[in-house]
Amino acid sequence: MTSPSSILGKAGSLKRASAERRLLAERITPYLFILPFFVLFGSFWIGPIAASFGYSFTAWRGITPPTFIGLQNYQVLWNDPRFHTAVSNTLLFTFLYVTLANALALALALLLNASWLRFRQFFRTAFFFPMTISMVVSAVIFQMVYAGDVGLISKLGAVVGIRTPSWLVDDDLAVWAIIIMRVWRTMGYYTIIYLAGLQTVPSDLREAARIDGANGWQIFRYVTLPVIRPVMLVCVVISTISALEMFDEPMILTQGGPADATLTVAMYLYQQGFQFLQLGQAAAASYILTLIILIISVVQRLTIGREQQ
């Protein structure tokens, strides 16, 4: 005959067993949930990023196994005038593009934020439109805008009687051609982000400033700008990183020419890696690019993000 207490004990241990199973399940479950993501992320991002660092110290031509050569790849890059050109071009591109894109986007956002402007909603969508066209297609289209005789610009020039220069074969103009195209494609995107920031500016604060006799510029400088500073930081950082990685536009519009005037680090890396199969050297170049990106991002955070604290 089983005593009531032993029945109770059995039930208790059963309950405990199921609670333990439950706990075990809860402990394993999160790992099962993250497993698929991290299998992919490990093999396509973390793994290659780490491996690339290793390969940057090797001579690796793709087919043969890599051999360790120490810092030689970095030394070669240090002495390669083409790499210097690529770095200085990339920095110039980035500076001009980031300044122009952010200034225009902010100005447009201020205008599109004004309540008295008609068709605001339409404009917001319409300016965003180029962002939906892929970078490659934009580049191909802009080739037809810049082209010497058949281009839109030269035809417009002919109407007014001006002979416009050939954008893509002139050293200086080719740089601007690429920047203008990039600004064209992304301006609407940054405008939308700035607009979201402008919407957080309390209108009574602006009103108070106006009553105190502040003019438009003063209101912008001392009321609006401090509030949208975090959004500005985001826009500047995103546009900087994307410009430092620029590849598609020079690849299609100019192939890095004329005379390497539009050669970027990413293009250099592609040529070294996949045209000359110097994969080790390309890996070293990619790490230098990473380093440049990190340094510039930190500097921007410190300067633009400064007054946040």
């Binding site: 690339s52 996949f274 890996a283």
Partner: peptide, 15 residues
């Protein structure tokens, strides 16, 4: 990992 340029991954992955 988001701040590392995707070009870094292309090279080893190609091999």
């Amino acid at each position: 990992s988001m701040s590392i340029p995707p070009f870094t991954t292309v090279i080893p992955l190609f091999g």
